[in-house]
Amino acid sequence: MPVIYTDLQDKIVLLTGVGQAPQEYDKEIWGNGAATAKVLAQSGAKIFGCDLDMASAELTKKCVEEQVKDARIDVVKADVTKRDEVVELVKKCMDTHGRIDVLVCNVGKSAPGGPAEMSDEVWQSQLDVNLTSVFLCTGQVLPIMEKQKSGSVILLSSVAGKGYAGRSHVGYSTTKSAIVSMAQTIGCRYAPLGIRANAVVPGLIHTPLVARLAFEYNNGDYEGIVKKRASEVPMGRMGTAFEVAQAIAFLSSQEASSYVTGSQLIVDGGITAAVHN
């Protein structure tokens, strides 16, 4: 059962990357954005979500409304790497709800390669999707929260940003490391104004995208890649998107995390501790 945070009732959550990839292998496996929408809706929050893929956003809306009684979720299409679209996204949310209490920056993309192999175009794409999107969204939302004198900003990082773990994805690891630094900077800068900012740092999470990894890196062997990834975790399993979402819900709640800012909440089954000890 999810933890219900009563102070999230009627709070407005702007959530990027809300889309749910098709659940090809298991209907119970959700992505981080969709799971976050569901978990926050279960606490009574109103979700205003965006995704570049409107079909995936509509799938999340459908799943949440089917499974959460009286869920309130709106979804729109937006490319959060483009300033004009982020400005319009925030305007739509404000026109609908008049405030933004929680911002969750969830979009992310990973591409293989190191500095010698990665093209300039792929490198720039990694920066845009993983980092510039956060810069643009926080830049538009923080002034709103400042006027409100309250708000929680939650940025999705990754254990890939904590150190090298055998995968050369230099763009992804670099940007995810930078996101932690952004959370620290924003958290300290805006602390006197009643605004908190933190990073959630997931490890190996079992989402619908694992199926894509199977075809890209494991000759289509889905069960094989699930077993392989689980073997890399001290707990012996991948995490679920709902475990990530519960961390996000905790940081969204003022009652639960009022003294937490500029911090990082690692949700990785022990990977980081095992690698760095």
Rank of each mutant, 00 (worst) to 15 (best):
Gly114Glu: 10
Pro115Arg: 10
Pro115Lys: 04
Pro115Glu: 10
Pro115Trp: 11
Ala116Gln: 15
Ala116Met: 14
Ala116Thr: 15
Glu117Ser: 15
Met118Asn: 11
Met118Pro: 07
Met118Lys: 03
Met118Ile: 15
Met118Val: 11
Ser119Thr: 15
Ser119Ile: 09
Ser119Phe: 06
Ser119Gly: 15
Asp120Ser: 11
Glu121Gln: 10
Glu121Ser: 13
Glu121His: 11
Val122Trp: 10
Val122Gly: 08
Val122Pro: 05
Val122Ile: 15
Trp123Leu: 12
Trp123Thr: 05
Trp123Ser: 09
Gln124Phe: 03
Gln124Thr: 07
Ser125Tyr: 05
Ser125Asn: 09
Gln126Cys: 14
Leu127Glu: 07
Leu127Ile: 11
Asp128Ser: 04
Asp128Gln: 10
Asp128His: 04
Asp128Phe: 02
Asp128Lys: 08
Asp128Leu: 04
Val129Ala: 00
Val129Ile: 14
Val129Arg: 00
Asn130Thr: 07
Asn130Gly: 06
Leu131Glu: 02
Thr132Arg: 11
Thr132Ile: 06
Thr132Trp: 01
Thr132Gln: 05
Ser133Met: 03
Ser133Leu: 03
Val134Phe: 01
Val134Thr: 03
Val134Ser: 00
Val134Ala: 02
Phe135Pro: 04
Phe135Leu: 08
Phe135His: 04
Phe135Ile: 08
Leu136Pro: 07
Cys137Glu: 04
Cys137Asn: 05
Cys137His: 05
Cys137Gln: 00
Cys137Trp: 00
Thr138Ile: 02
Thr138Asn: 14
Thr138Lys: 00
Gly139Cys: 08
Gly139Ser: 07
Gln140Arg: 06
Gln140Phe: 06
Gln140His: 10
Gln140Cys: 14
Gln140Asn: 13
Gln140Thr: 07
Val141Gly: 02
Val141Asn: 09
Leu142Trp: 06
Pro143Val: 05
Pro143Lys: 01
Ile144Ser: 02
Ile144Ala: 00
Ile144Tyr: 02
Ile144Arg: 07
Met145Gln: 13
Met145Gly: 08
Met145Asp: 01
Met145Ile: 11
Met145Arg: 08
Glu146Pro: 00
Glu146Lys: 13
Glu146Trp: 08
Lys147Leu: 13
Lys147Tyr: 07
Gln148Asp: 13
Lys149Ile: 03
Lys149Tyr: 06
Lys149Gly: 07
Lys149Met: 06
Ser150Cys: 14
Ser150Phe: 09
Gly151Phe: 13
Gly151Lys: 12
Gly151Gln: 15
